[in-house]
Write a protein that binds this DNA or RNA. Structure first.
Length: 809
RNA sequence: GCGGAUGUGGCGGAACUGGCAGACGCGCCGGACUUAGAAUCCGGUUCUUAGGAGUGCAGGUUCAAGUCCUGUCAUCCGCACCA
C-alpha cells in the first residue's frame, strides 16, 4: 500500500520534539488527573498488539484531560519480580536481575512506540532495592501491628513451582500460574491478616465506580454470611461441638451432625467400634487431592458412634464425619437438616438418616419430601416456633439461642488470611531476623532494604526451604535487638507485594525518606482511572485495597480506597491456524501480532486508532489484519482534506458549522463514555459529511480545520500535531483547549423524517425541524397521497423522527 | 447448581431516555485512472417470488420493540459441597 502521508517522518519528528518539550508539564496549579495502567511484568516475549489496547485507551484519556486543562499523572513501571526470570535462571544460570534488566529494556522500547504521555522520570521497578525497601517497610509495619504472623497449617503447595500459594492463587485446586494440581502441605508460613479487613473491604466496594462484575467477584470472594453458632453437647461426655449455621430457623429439624475429617474432636469422640472405620476415612480424605475433593459431589461419610444433643429439644443426633464439610470454614462442623438442605438431604438418603420437616409452604406437613424444601414458608414441628414465618424465625433465632446460652449470633467470611511467604529466590526478602534469645525481630527501618544476595543455585527445594537458606554468610547475622548471633528469615514475598502499593510510589518515586510524601499523595491520590485486564479482579485489586486500608490505619495515607474508577479492557484474540478457534494472543498459540511490525507498516497513529476501532473496549475482540487498512485510509483522507483546504479557507457555511458542532458534541460524549470504537466511527462519519459539505460550499473555514486537529490529538497525536502546524500554528496542539459545542448551532433547519402507515414506513419527507404537529401531518398526508386509505384512527408526530398515521380499513 | 455477560448482513460492529435496523469499517461486485498491476477515486452491497420478510427462538405490551415484559435456547466468563 503506497502512503499518502509520510507517517514515518512525521512520527519520529514529533516524538523527538515531545521528548524535549513534554506536552504535560508538572508542578502547575491545574486540577489533577491520575490515569494509571496496570504495570506489566517485563516478560522476555515483549508486547503484542493486545497489550496496546489498554495503554492506548488510558493515553487517549490522559491526552484528552490535558486538553481539558488538567495536570496529568500518567506513569509506567515494571512488576519485575516473579517466576519466569527465576525459572530461566535455573535453566541457564543467568541471574534474574540480568534477565529482568534486558526484558525491561526491550519492553520499554516497545512501550515507547505507543507514544503515550508517560512520565518516564516517575518509572518504578519493583526489583530495585530503593523500591523494595518500602515494600519491606510496609511488611515491618504490618508485623509491628500484629497483622503479619507466622502459622503452621496445611497450605496449598504447587509441586511444580515448589512453592506455597495463596488461596487466591489456587482457585479450583489448580495453580494459577502453571496449572498443576495443588496439594496440601503442612508448613509454617508467614500470613497477613487480611480477614481483619473483610468487613471494610466489602463495605467500601459500594461507592467505587468499578465494573459490577469485579465488585461481585470481590464480594463473593469475601463471602459474608449471617447466622449463628450453636453448641451441641455430646452425650455421655462433658465435651461439646459448636456448629455454624445460616439457618438457625431449622434447628428443630436437625437430625444428625457432620464434622470435617480434620476436625480435632473426631478422634476424641469416636467410639471403639467405629475407630477403624473413622481412621480409615480420615486418612483417605487427607490424601484425596484438592481437585477431586472439590469435584466429587457424591457424598461419602462415616459414623463416629457418638451422639450430640439438640439444645432446643434434647433430641439425640448421630455425629458423622464427611469431607463435604470443610475444615477451614465456619467451625468445621455442621448440624444437618436434611428436610431443608440439598446436601444434607442427599447424605440422609444415602445413609438412611431421619428427615424431619420443619418448614412447609402452607403450614401443613408434606406426605413425603422427594427433595429438600429450601424455600421460605411456615414453621411446623418446631415447638414454640410453629406457625411463624420461617424468615421471622431465621431473624429471631440467633438472639434466642444467645439468650438461652447455647450459642451466639455470628457472621462468617469465606476470605482467608493471606499466605504471604514464598520459598523462591526472586522476590523481596522478608525483613525479619530469628534470634534465639529475642525471638523474631524485625530488621530496623534504617537497615532496610534487606537486599537479595547472590546465590549459586536458584533451584527450589522439595522441603519448602528457600534457596536463600543455603547462603550461610547471608543467613547468619546479628540480632538487631541483643547483638547476638541470629539467622535471617529466608522466605521471600509473593509477587503481589510489590504491586500492592506501586501506585503510591509513582506519586513521589525518588523519595528516600518515605514511601511517598504526604504532599505528593495528597496531590495525586486517589487514582482517577485505573485501566487493566479483568484477571486481577480478586488478586491484585483486593490486595491493593487491603494495603491501602492498612496504610490509612497507620496514618501513612489519608484515603481508604486507591482506585476511584476501574476500567477492564477486553483481550485481543486471533484465530489459531490449526483449529480455526479464537484465542487470546499468546506465544503458545502462535497467534501473536507484533506491534513493532504493525507500526513499521502503518505507523503508530494508525495502530492506535485501530486498537480503539476494533470493538467495544470492554469486550474481547478479534484482530483482523486488513481491518487496520480502514483507519490508515481514513488518516490519509483527513490528511489530504486538511492539506488541500488549508490555504483557501472561506467563511463557514451554516451546514459546515452545524457539522462541526455536532462532531464536537458526539466525539466528546463518546470519549467521556469510553466507547472508543464509536468515537473512531464518528470521526469517519463526520469527515465524510464534511467533505461533501465542503465540496458543495467550495471550501472550509479555518476553525473547522483547527477543531479537527484538536479532536484528533488524543487519538492520533502525531498526525494531529503535524496538521496543526501545517495550518499555521507554532505552539503544540496540546497547549490548546478542547473545543466546545453550541447546541443551538448543532440543530439542522430541515430534517428528513419517516412517514408510516400503521407503523410501516411508506415514504420520507423533508420538513422544517420546528414544524408543529398539524403541519407535519399535513405534509405527510400529501406525500402519502393515494397510499393512505380507510379511516384515520390516530395521528402521531415525533418531531425530528417520525409521522405515524394509524388507519383502519 | 448459582451469578453475570453476549446473541443484529459474508465479517467486525452501530442504533442516545421505544421512533426510518444495518451507521462506520473490512470484504466483495462494478466503474474511472493506468501498457499492466498496486495504490487512489467514484458507485453498489441484509434477504427477497418486488408484495413483503427480517435483530437466537416462542409469546406479550404499544400507534411503534434490537430496545420494555414473560418464557426458552445457545455461547462465553466467574463462583462452586461455604452449611
Amino acid at each position: 500500500m503506497s502512503t499518502r502521508y509520510n507517517f514515518k517522518e512525521i512520527e519520529s519528528k514529533w516524538r523527538k520534539i515531545w521528548e524535549e518539550n513534554p506536552v504535560n508539564p508538572h508542578d502547575t496549579d491545574k486540577p489533577k488527573y491520575y490515569c494509571l495502567d496496570m504495570f506489566p511484568y517485563p516478560s522476555g516475549n515483549g508486547l503484542h498488539v493486545g497489550h496496546w489496547r489498554g495503554y492506548v485507551l488510558s493515553d487517549v484519556v490522559s491526552r484528552y484531560k490535558i486538553l481539558q486543562g488538567y495536570e496529568i499523572l500518567h506513569p509506567m513501571g515494571w512488576d519485575a519480580f516473579g517466576l519466569p526470570a527465576e525459572n530461566f535462571a535455573i535453566k541457564t544460570g543467568t541471574h534474574p536481575a540480568e534477565t529482568t534488566k534486558k526484558s525491561i529494556a526491550n519492553i520499554k522500547r516497545q512501550v515507547k512506540e505507543i507514544s503515550a504521555v508517560y512520565d518516564w522520570d516517575r518509572e518504578v521497578n519493583t526489583t530495585d532495592p530503593d523500591y523494595y525497601k518500602w515494600t519491606q517497610w510496609i511488611f515491618v509495619q504490618m508485623y509491628k501491628k500484629g497483622l503479619a504472623y507466622e502459622k503452621e497449617m496445611p497450605l496449598n503447595w504447587c509441586p511444580n513451582c515448589k512453592c506455597v500459594l495463596a488461596n487466591e492463587e489456587a482457585t479450583n485446586g489448580v495453580c494459577d500460574r502453571c496449572g498443576s494440581p495443588v496439594t496440601k502441605k503442612n508448613l509454617r508460613q508467614w500470613m497477613l491478616g487480611i480477614t481483619k479487613y473483610a468487613e471494610r473491604l466489602l463495605n467500601d466496594l459500594q461507592d467505587l465506580d468499578w465494573p459490577e462484575k469485579v465488585k461481585k467477584m470481590q464480594t463473593d470472594w469475601i463471602g459474608k454470611s449471617y447466622g449463628a453458632e450453636v453448641d451441641f453437647a455430646i452425650k455421655d461426655t462433658d465435651k461439646k461441638i459448636t456448629v455454624y449455621t445460616t439457618r438457625p430457623d431449622t434447628l428443630y429439624g436437625a437430625t444428625f451432625m457432620v464434622l470435617a475429617p480434620e476436625h480435632e474432636i473426631v478422634p476424641e469422640i469416636t467410639t471403639a467400634e467405629q475407630k477403624d472405620a473413622v481412621e480409615k476415612y480420615v486418612y483417605a480424605a487427607s490424601t484425596k487431592s484438592n481437585v477431586s475433593r472439590m469435584t466429587d459431589k457424591e457424598k461419602t461419610g462415616v459414623f463416629t458412634g457418638a451422639y450430640g444433643i439438640n439444645p432446643l429439644n434434647g433430641a439425640l443426633v448421630p455425629i458423622w464425619v464427611s469431607d463435604y464439610v470443610l475444615a477451614d470454614y465456619g467451625t468445621g462442623a455442621i448440624m444437618c437438616v436434611p428436610a431443608h438442605d440439598d446436601r444434607d438431604f442427599e447424605f440422609a438418603k444415602k445413609f438412611g438418616l431421619p428427615i424431619i420437616q420443619v418448614i412447609s409452604k402452607d403450614g401443613k406437613e408434606d406426605e413425603e419430601l422427594t427433595q429438600a424444601y429450601t424455600e421460605p414458608g411456615i414453621m411446623i414441628n418446631s415447638g414454640e416456633l410453629n406457625g411463624m414465618k420461617s424468615e421471622d424465625a431465621k431473624a429471631k433465632m440467633p438472639e434466642y439461642v444467645e439468650k438461652q446460652g447455647f450459642g451466639k449470633k455470628t457472621v462468617n467470611y469465606k476470605l482467608r488470611d493471606w499466605v504471604f511467604s514464598r520459598q523462591r529466590y526472586w522476590g523481596e526478602p522478608i525483613p525479619l531476623v530469628h534470634c534465639e534469645k529475642c525471638g523474631i525481630v524485625p530488621v530496623p527501618e534504617e537497615q532496610l532494604p534487606v537486599e537479595l544476595p547472590n546465590v549459586e543455585s536458584y533451584q527450589p527445594t522439595e522441603t519448602g526451604e528457600s534457596p536463600l537458606a543455603s547462603i550461610e554468610e547471608w543467613v547468619n547475622t546479628t540480632c538487631p535487638c541483643c547483638g547476638g548471633p541470629a539467622k535471617r528469615e529466608t522466605n521471600t514475598m509473593p509477587q503481589w507485594a510489590g504491586s500492592s502499593w506501586y501506585f503510591l510510589r509513582y506519586c513521589d518515586n525518588h523519595n528516600d525518606k518515605e514511601l511517598a510524601s504526604k504532599e505528593a499523595l495528597k496531590k495525586w491520590m486517589p487514582v482517577d482511572l485505573y485501566v487493566g485486564g479483568v484477571e486481577h479482579a480478586v488478586l491484585h485489586l483486593l490486595y491493593a485495597r487491603f494495603y491501602t486500608k492498612f496504610l490509612y490505619d497507620i496514618g501513612a495515607v489519608d484515603f481508604e480506597e486507591p482506585f476511584k474508577r476501574l476500567f477492564n479492557q477486553g483481550m485481543i484474540c486471533k484465530k489459531n491456524e490449526e483449529d480455526g478457534k479464537l484465542y487470546k494472543m499468546s506465544k503458545n498459540k502462535g497467534n501473536v501480532v507484533s506491534p513493532d511490525e504493525t507500526v513499521e507498516k502503518y505507523g503508530c497513529d494508525s495502530l492506535r486508532m485501530y486498537e480503539l476501532f476494533i470493538g467495544p473496549p470492554e469486550l474481547d475482540s478479534e484482530w483482523d489484519d486488513s481491518g487496520i487498512d480502514g483507519v490508515f485510509r481514513y488518516l490519509n483522507k483527513i490528511w489530504k482534506f486538511v492539506d488541500e483546504n488549508k490555504d483557501k479557507t472561506i467563511a463557514a457555511t451554516s451546514e459546515i458549522e452545524q457539522i462541526r458542532h455536532k462532531m464536537i458534541y458526539e466525539i466528546t460524549n463518546r470519549l467521556e463514555a469510553l466507547t472508543m470504537n464509536t468515537v473512531v466511527s464518528g470521526f469517519m462519519e463526520f469527515t465524510n459529511k464534511l467533505i461533501n459539505a465542503v465540496k458543495a460550499a467550495g471550501g472550509v473555514d479555518m476553525e473547522t480545520l483547527e477543531t479537527i486537529c484538536i479532536l484528533l490529538a488524543p487519538f492520533t497525536p502525531h498526525i494531529a500535531e503535524e496538521m496543526w502546524q501545517n495550518i499555521g500554528h507554532t505552539e503544540s496542539v496540546f497547549k490548546q483547549k478542547w473545543p466546545e459545542y453550541d447546541e443551538n448551532k448543532m440543530k439542522e433547519d430541515t430534517v428528513e423524517i419517516a412517514v408510516q402507515i400503521n407503523g410501516k414506513v411508506k415514504t420520507t419527507i423533508n420538513i422544517a425541524a420546528d414544524f408543529d404537529k398539524d403541519s407535519a401531518i399535513a405534509a405527510a398526508k400529501e406525500a402519502l397521497g393515494t397510499k393512505l386509505t380507510g379511516t384515520i384512527v390516530k395521528e402521531i408526530y415525533v418531531p425530528g423522527r417520525i409521522v405515524n398515521i394509524v388507519a383502519k380499513n
